[in-house]
Measured scan of single mutants.
Amino acid sequence: SEIVKHAEEALERGEFVRIEHNGRVIEIRNEEALEELRRWVEK
């Protein structure tokens, strides 16, 4: 997914991403959060 790709690229640069999706906000700061995002987006 485009969202996950964006988050992965930001993590590689040492940045973090805040994503709003279906009214929820998730902050991607590490691999664990990235995995959570993947599960969340796939639903």
Rank of each mutant, 00 (worst) to 15 (best):
R29H: 12
I19K: 01
F16M: 10
I3D: 04
R18S: 11
K43N: 12
A33Q: 15
N22A: 12
V17R: 02
F16T: 11
N22S: 08
H6G: 08
E32R: 09
E27Q: 06
I3Q: 06
R24Y: 13
I3V: 11
E36T: 08
W40F: 06
W40S: 04
V4D: 01
I19W: 11
A33R: 05
E12G: 14
I3Y: 06
G14H: 06
I19N: 00
I3P: 03
K43V: 12
L11M: 06
A33T: 12
A7F: 04
G14A: 04
V17P: 09
E42V: 08
E31L: 14
E35S: 07
R13W: 03
E36F: 09
E2S: 13
E2N: 11
I3N: 04
G23D: 05
I19C: 06
K5N: 06
K5C: 05
A33Y: 04
V41C: 07
L34Q: 00
E42C: 13
E20Q: 10
K43M: 14
E31Y: 15
L11R: 02
G14C: 06
G23T: 01
V41L: 13
E36G: 05
K43I: 14
R39E: 11
E8Q: 15
W40Q: 05
N30T: 13
F16H: 09
A7K: 00
R38S: 04
V17G: 03
R13L: 04
W40M: 08
I3C: 08
E36R: 09
E27Y: 13
E8Y: 11
I3A: 07
E2T: 11
K43R: 13
E35G: 06
A7R: 01
E15W: 08
S1L: 13
L37E: 00
V25T: 09
L11D: 01
L11Q: 01
W40L: 10
E36P: 00
H6F: 15
E20G: 03
E8T: 14
V25M: 07
E15K: 07
L34W: 02
S1A: 14
E20F: 14
I3S: 05
V4T: 04
N30V: 02
I28T: 00
V17Y: 12
I26P: 00
E36W: 15
A10G: 05
V4N: 02
E36C: 05
E12D: 09
A10V: 05
K43H: 13
L34Y: 01
L37F: 10
E32K: 11
E42L: 11
I3M: 11
E36K: 09
N30Y: 03
R13V: 03
H6D: 07
E20L: 12
L11V: 05
H6N: 10
E8L: 13
H21C: 08
R13E: 03
S1P: 12
E36Q: 11
E9W: 08
E35M: 08
V17L: 14
V4Q: 02
I3K: 12
E9A: 14
A33W: 05
E9N: 10
E27V: 13
V41P: 02
H6L: 15
V4M: 11
I28V: 12
E8G: 08
E35W: 06
A7N: 01
N22Q: 10
E12T: 12
I26R: 01
R24D: 05
L34T: 00
E27R: 02
R13M: 05
E12M: 15
S1G: 10
E9I: 09
E9K: 11
I19D: 00
R18T: 15
E20M: 11
W40V: 06
L34R: 00
S1T: 11
H21A: 08
R39G: 09
H21D: 04
R39N: 13
E12Y: 12
A10F: 06
